[in-house]
Nucleic acid binder design. Structure first.
Lengths: 346, 346
DNA sequence: CTGTTAGCGCGTTCAC
DNA sequence: GTGAACGCGCTAACAG
């Protein structure tokens, strides 16, 4: 068994299985603490035989250096904080994974905080992170709308991911939703589609607006315009997708391509089309945004989608934070390039 | 703007905006370090006026005590590690949220690690956590199948969540899948259903087996048996749900209730039923497991489901870890009670 | 090559 | 009430 509690098998409370310290190792190896330290840290000027003795002692005692003590001298803790606005949402997770991955391969550990979209909680977690002297912080928003920066004097670098800071002197990383819109259009155009409808989500979201902008501009560049003249805004749900698609095919039976605000809308639209006897992708192509696996690969045909590369976004945020910790980083907003994932629906 | 890098506006490198230390506060307040410490920690025997001066100084310098230094003396770091086997999967997240919540309201911060189902990575993260002297560790599995315990001597308490440890002297928390199966049956029975089919997922999963066990036992207790005699095992996908449901209604048109291995299968089954002109829930009820919102609330009718209360599971794991850190905790496997979420499909 | 000394920032006796 | 002194575990100068 692995030891399951802090207590040992020893007599009773007394002589707790204190984690071995450098001193213990030094004593066992018969050297001074300093020498032991040097040996373990691969510093120069330590006789090989001595180093070996120390290493052996360390292994025997299962010695692990106390990071807290180390941080005291170095000033750096090798930790960063990740404040997510809404872990529940499906956008935070991939970003978080990307960041965790980028950091994990290095030496830094990640503190996870869920602010649940509440400013008070955010403040609370922020304080906790500063008390722990994290070397930096990544703030992950729930939507791509710009958000006010963290309040107060933050003595460490901060990177805003997904939701950019409204302060342009901050460093932010966001998906390139305009480009995503353009990509959706070129994808359909290259499949020979010309009469394209855009069933979007909630117009209050920056993402909805930016994608619509990208779509409009790409169509214009091709000398085309949306079927129905403009995008249909509604909700980010399947239900909205079903209803909106119904109206589109009723009013514009010539439609041969649908760009949907996200994969849920896309799925709803697909359902309506199939129910009305339309053949997808033969008669009309369907493509959404987000590339949410469960939504896109569940139905038949499977749904094409624009992947916003959120994991890459998280990784980039981690790298930027890393650089900021080392020195300066150019402030402003970075945009992560999306990619088209073609499946059966287009 | 918030300070975005470690450097200041000061002359050049020199005199870095070092985070204020207790000494700075003491100096500014004109007292000794010890007094400042007492004042800030609400210790007795400090004159009120002195305390106020210290607090004012602390505020002015934006002083935050250095946790690392604190941990050095206290021995405890107030941090725990959360090693997830597969963050990507949809089960880790709610557990993680529950745990983060339970800890967050206290004083402890959570280190997040993603082992990606790889033993090497797990070992790597484990070492990192031990180096950071976490007070405890929660290991979150990707499936409910029992897993071997962490290897090596772990000097801190460990709680296994979702996937129990094969070592019965460890402490584990898992969903009660047998009960979940029973609940599904009683739900359908109380809705007057008697001819129930069970379209399960991958038989290699403990969850599939346990749910099937619960279902069988509840039916037996009611003097009934599954339509077709036994459960249909396959995959955890919509596609499997669609196909399996088709075979069920072809062979057993008298079926009036379907218990599906998870919400995806459930959704697939619903689609097949509707396509074949069956009325859900009028003609036949459908219920799944997991209560995955996007799956259950997307389609129309919305899908009933058994919620395994994973967030509660995470919270329980956190509480158990907390208790283990304080003292002993009864080893063994705890099971979290599920709950039925009734929607339109039943 | 190795050991001694001096802090890192804080909490805690224990004198004053 | 208040402050001087010590130690937590470790690293970095300097001696030896």
């Amino acid at each position: 068994m692995t030891t399951t509690t802090g207590t040992t098998d020893a007599p009773e409370g007394e002589s707790e299985a204190r984690r071995a310290t450098l001193r213990d190792v030094a004593t066992l190896a018969g050297v001074s603490i300093a020498t032991a330290s040097k040996a373990l840290n691969e510093r120069a000027h330590v006789r090989e035989s001595t180093r070996d003795r120390v290493l052996a002692a360390a292994t025997e005692l299962a010695f692990t250096p106390n990071q807290a003590a180390r941080s005291l001298t170095s000033g750096q803790t090798g930790t960063v904080g990740l404040i997510a606005d809404d872990l529940d949402g499906r956008f935070s997770l991939p970003i978080l994974m990307g960041a965790e991955d980028a950091f994990g391969t290095g030496q830094v550990s990640v503190f996870l905080c869920d602010a649940r979209g509440d400013a008070i909680r955010e403040r609370y977690h922020l304080d906790a992170l500063l008390r722990r002297k994290v070397d930096g912080i990544i703030v992950v928003g729930a939507r791509t709308d710009a958000r006010p920066p963290l309040v107060g004097r933050i003595p460490v670098p901060v990177i805003y991911a997904y939701a950019p800071s409204t302060d342009t002197t901050d460093v932010s990383v966001v998906p390139d939703d305009v480009q995503a819109g353009r990509d959706a259009v070129s994808h359909l155009l290259s499949a020979g589609r010309q009469r394209i409808a855009h069933i979007s989500g909630d117009a209050a979201y920056t993402a909805a607006q930016e994608r619509a902008t990208g779509i409009a501009s790409a169509l214009e560049a091709a000398g085309l315009e949306l079927v129905g003249g403009s995008a249909q805004f509604g909700a980010w749900s399947e239900q909205w997708g079903r209803g909106a698609a119904q109206r589109v095919i009723d009013q514009y039976p010539e439609v041969d391509g649908m760009i949907c605000g996200n994969d849920q809308i896309s799925r709803g639209a697909l359902e309506t089309l199939q129910r009305s006897g339309w053949n997808v992708p033969h008669q009309t192509s369907v493509i959404g945004f987000d590339n949410w696996e469960v939504m896109t690969t569940g139905p038949s045909p499977t749904l094409s989608s624009i992947d916003l590369n959120l994991e890459q976004l998280g990784r980039t945020a981690a790298e930027l934070l890393f650089e900021s910790i080392q020195g300066q980083v150019e402030p402003g907003i970075r945009r992560i390039t999306p990619r088209v994932v073609t499946r059966e629906s287009s």
